[in-house]
Simulated assay, not measured.
Amino acid sequence: MTVALPLLVAGGVLFMAGTALLLTRSLTRILLGAVLIGNGVNILFLSTTGRTGDTPLLYPGTDPGQVTDPLPQAMALTAIVITLAVTAFLLAMVYRSWQLTGSDEVPDDIEDRRVALRAEETAERARLQDEYKKLRRQYANAARDGGAAGKARGRVVRARAEYEQSRSRLRRRLRADRLQQPDTTDASSDLWDHVLGEDR
């Protein structure tokens, strides 16, 4: 079986462009990326049917070795139907997102941001606690030796103040992020009024 190189290149380019569009935040670009990937799949299916110019059907008197393979054509038709369904679904999502928020941008997941902030806070707190404990040990050793206890005490006080400031700063960030969470709707309200809005 021979494969047409231009069809392979065109399918690969459509795949790359569609993947790049799928990785964006705009739902419209995600829709275009899904359409491009669907078309790339169709072209790659058609590139496996055989040489160009072969007979599409097995007519009487036709050499069976000169007929294109019908299976990729049937799979391309199936892929067209699937692409149409995905396109309709994404169009509905884009329209509804535009209606509710006035934008088609996909927002950050607030819970993911909270988890990341909490991990950052835990790591920063552990680092500051280790530094504070190390300075406390240095201060205890300096006080026992009777040497530079004043300097060591100053470093301990500064480390403690930095630890407290960093902890309060991270707590403020967590509180501000928690305030950005969407309000939960009252369970007694009509769910369809909330979901459908003016379309009902």
Rank of each mutant, 00 (worst) to 15 (best):
E105Y: 10
D177Y: 01
F45Q: 12
A140G: 06
I110N: 10
Y59Q: 10
T87L: 00
D183H: 12
Y139A: 12
A88F: 14
G53H: 03
A142G: 14
L21D: 10
N39P: 00
A34G: 09
A126P: 01
L44H: 13
A140D: 13
Q165N: 04
G197A: 11
Q66T: 03
G40Q: 08
R51S: 13
V67K: 02
G102V: 07
A17N: 13
L91K: 02
Q66R: 01
H194R: 15
T48I: 13
I43E: 04
E120N: 13
G40L: 09
R125K: 04
F15V: 06
V156P: 08
R167I: 02
R144N: 15
L84K: 08
T78F: 14
V13Q: 09
P72N: 05
D193H: 14
K151I: 04
L14G: 09
T83C: 08
M1D: 13
T68I: 13
A4G: 09
L14W: 00
G18M: 10
W98Q: 15
A187V: 15
L57M: 06
V195P: 12
R137W: 01
P60G: 12
R171P: 03
T28I: 05
I82H: 11
G50K: 06
V9D: 12
G154C: 00
R136M: 07
S103T: 09
Q138I: 02
I110M: 06
P60N: 14
L117M: 12
S189C: 08
Y59P: 03
Y139K: 13
L77C: 09
R114A: 03
T24C: 13
A148S: 15
V157Q: 14
V3D: 04
D177K: 05
A142Y: 02
L90K: 00
L135H: 09
Q129S: 10
E120L: 07
Q180Y: 03
L22H: 06
G12T: 09
R172N: 08
